[in-house]
Deep mutational scan, measured.
Amino acid sequence: PKDEAKKKVKEAIKRGDEETAKRIAKKYNLDWDDAKREADEER
C-alpha cells in the first residue's frame, strides 16, 4: 500500500539514506518531493 511505502520513504530520508528513499518512491510511483517535504517537516 502507498501509505506504507511513503512511511518507508520518509524513514529512509530521516536516516539520511536518500538512495533507498528514491528507489522506494520510484517503485511505488510516489511523489519524491512530496515525501521529502513531509519528512523534513517531521524532523
Rank of each mutant, 00 (worst) to 15 (best):
V9K: 00
E18A: 05
P1E: 15
R15H: 06
W32Y: 15
A25L: 02
W32F: 15
K2Q: 14
E18P: 07
D31H: 05
Y28S: 03
A35M: 15
D40E: 14
W32V: 03
W32H: 02
K22Y: 07
A35I: 15
E38N: 05
D17Y: 05
D40M: 10
D31T: 04
A21N: 00
A12L: 15
A25I: 03
D33F: 09
A25T: 03
E18S: 06
T20R: 07
E19A: 12
R43Q: 14
A21V: 00
K14N: 10
E19S: 08
W32K: 00
L30C: 02
E41T: 10
K10I: 15
G16T: 00
D31Q: 06
K10R: 11
L30S: 01
V9F: 11
D3M: 10
L30K: 01
V9H: 02
Y28F: 12
E4C: 14
E38S: 06
E19Q: 09
K14G: 08
K26S: 12
E41L: 12
A25W: 00
K22F: 06
D3W: 14
R23Y: 10
E19N: 06
K7V: 09
D40S: 10
K27H: 11
V9R: 00
A39Q: 05
D3L: 11
E19C: 05
K36H: 05
D40I: 10
A21G: 05
K6R: 13
A35R: 01
K36A: 07
K7F: 10
D31G: 03
T20N: 07
E41P: 05
R43A: 13
N29Q: 09
I13F: 05
L30Q: 01
D17I: 00
D40Q: 10
R37M: 08
E11D: 13
G16A: 03
L30P: 00
P1W: 14
K14Y: 11
P1F: 14
E4W: 15
K7A: 12
A39R: 04
D31K: 04
G16C: 07
K6Q: 08
A21H: 00
I24T: 03
A39F: 12
E4A: 13
K14Q: 12
A35E: 08
A5P: 05
